[in-house]
């Protein structure tokens, strides 16, 4: 089967009555890796939360579809089961629920009753992915993200990505707060996922992640819109020259939407 397509058209999103996204257009296909770059407060994280369906974000205009299905009609869990995944910037800590139990529930939520993944198969898969991500195997039995360091949480997001195998993943600042070794491991995980059946939208401030993952498309967000798109060379230019040249080109004075997003 060919890869899935996530289509975002003219997306407007409000939070607490304030409009943050002002007409985002974007299409991510299986086999593609997109990077969205841009300074703080330009709406990047809002975009990821709106796609996943965070209850605080209200879509006021536009559409999001996955393979033609209306994503906006779906609950958060339905979106996930339809094939979307969001690697979060600040993953929640959940006491008393082990990483392994949580992941097994997540995988089984995609399977019919009576067809749950066998415990042995699950453990084998989890062990091998954890080894691949150079994670301590004890982390399977630790409570979900509780007491994890910043780097451990990010690795754990990638572990979930690899276990759940979504069609389209959005990774929100998966690189922030990582040292170079952790960054390499996280990149290794994302690269491992690369295939015709997997599309990925990476949201980042920094070019350095893109040294390890070569994107097919790079987009720049400002003022709640995608203002510029290009290939990997765009990321290179942003790294050396910053964002000012884009602002000048487009006549933008303040790139933010007035909210830390």
């Amino acid at each position: 089967m060919a890869g899935s397509v996530l289509t975002i058209k003219d997306l407007h999103v409000e939070i607490e009555g304030k409009e943050i996204l002002k007409g985002v257009n974007l299409e991510v296909k299986g086999g593609e890796i997109h990077a969205i770059m841009g300074p703080n407060g330009t709406g990047k994280s809002t975009l990821s939360s709106a796609v996943m369906g965070h209850p605080k974000y209200k879509v006021t205009q536009g559409t999001i579809t996955l393979d033609g299905e209306d994503v906006l009609e779906m609950e958060v869990d339905e979106r996930a089961r339809a094939g979307l995944f969001l690697g979060m910037q600040y993953p929640s800590e959940i006491s008393g629920v082990t990483n392994a139990d949580f992941l097994r529930s997540a995988i089984n939520s995609r399977r019919e009753e009576g067809k749950e993944i066998s415990l042995m198969k699950f453990i084998r898969k989890m062990d091998s992915q954890m080894e691949f991500l150079e994670m301590d195997l004890d982390m399977a039995q630790r409570y979900l993200n509780e007491g994890f360091s910043g780097g451990e949480k990010k690795r754990n997001e990638i572990l979930q990505l690899m276990m759940i195998e979504p069609k389209i993943a959005i990774l929100d600042e998966i690189d922030s707060g990582l040292d170079i070794d952790a960054l390499k491991v996280v990149s290794k995980g994302i690269n491992e996922m690369r295939s015709e059946d997997f599309g990925c939208l990476i949201i980042t401030h920094y070019q350095r992640l893109l040294n390890y993952i070569t994107p097919d498309h790079v987009h720049v967000m400002m003022q709640g819109r995608v203002v510029k798109s290009g290939g990997p060379e765009l990321a290179q230019r942003l790294e050396t020259e910053g964002y000012d040249w884009i602002k000048q080109e487009l006549g933008i004075e303040d790139e933010t939407v007035g909210l830390e997003a």
Partner: peptide
């Protein structure tokens, strides 16, 4: 915590099951 439910649901876990996990986790100690 709605943030916890959102996180669990974003992995495909239905709301009722997410609540169950949070409650059991809360009482687990």
């Amino acid at each position: 915590d709605p943030g916890q439910l959102y996180y669990l649901m974003s992995r495909g876990i239905p709301q009722a099951e997410a609540e169950r996990l949070v409650i059991h986790g809360f009482l687990a100690p």
